[in-house]
């Protein structure tokens, strides 16, 4: 099959890439771009480990056809770090609160948290839980994850 050229933004950079039509965004990120911060857990949209942000919305990269990325703005966990290498405040909050155990769900959790906080500066605990309902932590360390996201709120 022929490769197709698509154009989009990835972590703020303009991209022109040749892709195969059946690739998912997750495959492209990990296997072609080497951006392995985005994890593959289940591959069925159940676990949220592959969460990235497209045009301000959190999505599962494992269920996103690469062909639909055309013209869109994609942010992965690698895109949160500032140019001088400083971690994003949400990343710092996760470290500060000890919200990381094995770390596999962490990038997805942080991307879901970022999408929430970009839309809602001071979410309630319920809103936080709702936003990360599609992100499974099998170490089951949810309390600290929720605490970390809470510290980002305007009221605290």
């Amino acid at each position: 099959m022929m490769r197709k050229e698509i154009r989009f933004r990835l972590n703020g950079e303009e991209m022109v890439c040749d892709v195969e039509a059946h690739w998912t965004l997750l495959y492209f990120l990990r296997e072609i771009m080497g951006l392995t911060g985005t994890k593959e857990g289940c591959g069925y949209g159940e676990c949220g480990a592959c969460t990235v942000i497209i045009d301000n919305e959190a999505i599962n990269a494992c269920l996103y056809p690469i062909m639909e990325v055309e013209g869109k703005d994609v942010t992965t966990i690698e895109g949160l770090v500032s140019q001088n290498g400083e971690l994003h405040p949400i990343q710092k909050a996760f470290i500060e609160e000890g919200a990381v155990q094995c770390g596999f769900c962490t990038p997805g959790m942080i991307m879901s948290a970022k999408a929430l906080l970009d839309e809602n500066k001071d979410p309630t605990e319920e809103e936080i839980k709702e936003a990360i309902a599609g992100n499974l932590c099998r170490c089951t360390g949810y309390v600290k994850i929720i605490d970390a996201i809470k510290t980002m709120g305007g009221g605290r």
Binding site: G45, G48, E57, A58, I59, N60, A115, L116, E130, G134
Partner: peptide
Amino acid sequence: LGSRQIRNV
């Protein structure tokens, strides 16, 4: 229905 990630698409 599903999760935020699913509902978005």
